[in-house]
Each structure stands twice: as C-alpha cells, then as structure tokens.
Design a binder for these strands. Structure first.
Lengths: 112, 112
DNA sequence: TCCTAATGCATCAAATACTTATGTGTAAAA
DNA sequence: TTTTACACATAAGTATTTGATGCATTAGGA
C-alpha cells in the first residue's frame, strides 16, 4: 500500500484495542481481523505480530491460554487488569495523535 | 509526551506539507512551526530533522538555498516540481492512514 | 561581567520497530 | 499432488528516530 510505514509505532495499540473489543483472540485471528477491518490496507506480518504479543505478555498486559483445536495449536491472548488500563491510555494517546496529525496536514478541516 | 513514537514514519510528510504551505523554510524554523502548531506536543529533534532534510534533497524533492542573515547561516529549503507531486501523494496516503486508524481504534465514530 | 538561553547548522552511537526470509507442522482445496 | 490456508516462531537486515555531542553567533538576565 505504500503507506505501511505510517503504521509504525501503532501495532501495540491496535492489538490492545482488538482485545478490548473481542475479549480473547489468537495471533492468526488478529491478522485476519485487521486485514478485514482495513479492507486489506494493513497487513500485520507474523514477524511483527508475534514479537509484539510476546512483549505485551512479558510486560504483564496480556495473559496467554494455550488451546488445541483439532490438531492445531492456538494461543489465546486476553487483557490483564493492567492491560486494560494501558489500553485506555494508549487509545487516548492515539486519539490525541490523530487529532494533532489531522491538524498538521489539513489545518482548515480541523478545529482550533 | 509519550506518544512521540506514533509520529514515527510521518516526519517526511510533515516537512513536505509545511513547505507546501510556506513555500520556503529553514530547519530551525520548521521545528518551531511544528512545536507551535501542535501546542508543544510534537518536538522535532535536530537528529531527526537534518538527516530527513538531506535525504529529501538527495531524492530531488527539495532544493536548498543558503542565506546569511546577520552573521548566521541559514539553509532555506523549498519544494521542487517532483517534490510537489510527492507531497500530494504523501498527503493522500496520510489522509488514508488517518481514516483507517480512526476506524480501527474508534469504529463507532467513523464512516463505513 | 558572566552565564544561560536562543538561534542555527551538523554528526553519530544506540535504541526501536519493523520487513523479509526462513523454519516447523497440520489440514483443506485445486 | 502441489498449492493455499492455518498456526506458531525466530532472526538478519533495514529504516527511522532519540539522545548526546559539537561548533558558532547573539541576546538577555543576574
């Protein structure tokens, strides 16, 4: 899409937001959701996703629960209490960022 | 501000947009404009700015004109013809990104 | 008078966050 | 039977930025 690099720095926030909405998700499911929600504009690669999930877990924002579906392995992630608070923070920061950026690139259409 | 990292990847676009609006600017001026426009939320550091300007110049998007004001040196940058086209592209990409991200983090308030 | 802050350029090591490639294995579809 | 989807994972390389440092001029406050 060309603008993939604009998403740099927002992956954690996206993951947390999805988990806030859907309660419990596994990695592959996250990539598919994001692809669908963005009409294919954003494709989260595995090389980005799995390290991000591991980091969020290590930081105590996510809990993991391993499940076996058929013969396949799945790791379900969900927000911890701390994770929920951090999600709220990160979403607020994201809104602030979006507002600021909108203001920067298109001053006439943004308030203030 | 904590959300500084969200701006990662958008520096070039910001610079180009400012030059589109203001025709001709020098480095320090850009940092001050951005700080003012964002109420201090985004502070472009010199370590990011100057390499970015040099790259845009090397890529043929900017022209430089050195000026001496008083006893101080200034390097005025302005868009080349190619730079103007690229600016339009990058601004379109940015709008698309902002819309997509808004949709991701706050589905209920965005169209579609 | 002296020190700090502002103005103005610049470079560089380190950190960050990602892409791309690769690897393992199962299951379904063509 | 070969490709595609499912599902995890790591690792080398790349790009962008932070934070530190450096040089030099000018203005302002103590």
């Amino acid at each position: 899409m060309g603008n993939q690099k604009l998403f740099k720095g927002s992956l954690q926030t996206i993951i947390l937001k999805l988990l806030e909405t859907n309660d419990k998700m596994y990695g592959y499911e996250i990539t598919q959701h994001v692809k669908a929600l963005t009409n294919g504009e954003l494709k989260i690669t595995e090389g980005a996703l799995y390290p991000a999930l591991h980091k969020l877990e290590a930081d105590g924002l996510l809990d993991v629960e391993v499940a076996k579906v058929g013969n396949r392995l799945r790791k379900y992630y969900k927000l911890t209490e701390i994770g929920s608070k951090e999600t709220a923070n990160k979403l607020a920061e994201m809104q602030e960022f979006l507002k600021t950026m909108q203001h920067l690139v298109n001053p006439k259409f943004s308030s203030e």
